[in-house]
Amino acid sequence: MKPAPFTYHDPQTLDEAYGLLATLENARVLSGGQSLIPMLNFRYVQPDHIIDVAGIAAISGITYKDGILKIGAMTRQREIEYSDIVATHCPLMREAILQVGHRQTRNRGTIGGSLAHLDPAAELPLVACAMDGMIHLGGSRGTRDVAFTDYALGFMTTAIEPDEMITGVSIPTWKPGHGSAFVEFARREGDFAIVAIAALMEIDASQTITRAALAVGGALATAQRLPEAEAILVGAKANDETFRAAGEACTQIDAVEDVHAPASYRKSLAGVLTRRALKAAAERTK
């Protein structure tokens, strides 16, 4: 299990990287390598060119300004895990990141890599989905920002054009005092989830839900929002009855089936985990 031959490039600036992407055929961007290198070792992908973007300082780092959390594509998952900015402004991402792989893979893996790989059960795309994340793409033809819903086109398929790369993601954060929860069911610690649910909620003094977001991962071809359940939540009281109804709505998804679990199980899990996530999110509101 060794990678097929490729030519290696390590641009030090974005322009350099864009230039390579524009001119090279069958090139793949390498960031942390935690998704791409297994694919190379299995020879599931055999790019002619590898463009290692680790040297591009401009796409690494975490900032927060005017309600927007911005994370550079090359930012390692470990840095997100230990970031005070993330913990303060985006507790959902902080909770999710602890469930991404293991210490050894979080030390190397990047948020850009996770978004580009777009495994249907991956945690970070699910956070981007739940929070209306904006994916920043760049290339020699210019840059563009794509909302997650337009970015995730299908099973491990993104809107990134062959001459483009991810440079970062912006997450509009929720008001202080909101509650969130990231709940997943995996067979073992660190495994990809069979189903994962991300939930966010704001409630007013009368315990009425004023804003809610729910997204599911692992159950469909890609992370997706659950608008029917969201509609049940907004305007309703934050109580078990409401959460149960929202959970019930989530069991209606058109879940995928594979060797690990039948669709019926994923639907049922989506309902259970939604209820649990909403309960936890509600408890965390202030």
């Binding site: 299995f42 067979r187 073992r188 610690e189 660190g190 495994d191 990809f192 060797v259």
Partner: peptide, 28 residues
């Protein structure tokens, strides 16, 4: 955990990574 799945019709193996064929970990 451990289940080596094969396609019932083609006998193609379906769980050929350690992320699909699950071995017990320290938490289990």
């Amino acid at each position: 955990l451990e289940w080596m799945h094969y396609d019932p019709d083609t006998c193609q193996p379906l769980t050929t990574t350690l992320a699909d064929y699950l071995l017990p970990t320290a938490d289990m």
